[in-house]
Amino acid sequence: MDLKLKIWRQKDSRSRGRFVNYFLREIDPDCSFLEMLDILNEQLISRNEEPVVFDHECREGICGSCSIYINGRPHGPDELTTVCQLHMRKFNHGDTIVIEPWRARSFPVIRDLMVDRSSFDTLIREGGYISVNTGTAPDANTIPVNRDDAVFAMDAAACIGCGACVAACKNASAMLFVGAKISHLASLPQGRVEARKRVQDMVAMMDALGFGNCTNTGACEVECPKGIKMANIVRLNREYLKSTL
């Protein structure tokens, strides 16, 4: 298929960016979106132009590195999919594809489609863990965990930290990311011990980092490549209120 790509090019966080048009011919529909960008970059390099910079790593949809806003949607048009698992058969011959980076104050652009998501790491450092030192744990089966709680925890823990929730949210809010971690840990008995402090610290940091506020639009849930549910935001709100009262 032949495609017209409208790609955001930006030298660094301080420069002004702009869209540049590229044309690609005879792209195999079985090729992944990132492989399509690889092909473009090979051509750019041969033409002595700067290749397009984007984050990518595992290319099997689990590391959370890839982060591209395609035709108005984070990770593109396919449901429950990261960019690396998005295939060109989801597009049509002759399509124009608009390709932008995540846009949020807390995710400044580094270059082109690559953004700085270290604010997510900062959030986890504020308490997104259970304080247990290596070697001090009791036998793994000492505390039984209700299976439904374990399943809920697992579904929340499936977050890959890609930032699509922030990118999708009209307010650039990080509530789904924080909510997923809060409710993962709060639904396990091991995580309850620190639950109060964790939610207070993480929410305070989330505000300090300049993420927007949640207005429950649900865009995050729709765009999350791992299907993390809004229920985690509700859980976060509940834990926060409980810890405040």
Binding site: T134, A137, P138, A140, V145, A150, H184, Q190
Partner: peptide, 22 residues
């Protein structure tokens, strides 16, 4: 064995049976 103990204490959501055990 210690690895499993430690990871459970860290909150790793291993799959469980209905009785709540791993």
């Amino acid at each position: 064995n210690q690895i499993i103990d430690h990871c459970v204490a860290q909150g790793v959501p291993f799959s469980r049976e209905y009785g709540g055990l791993l």
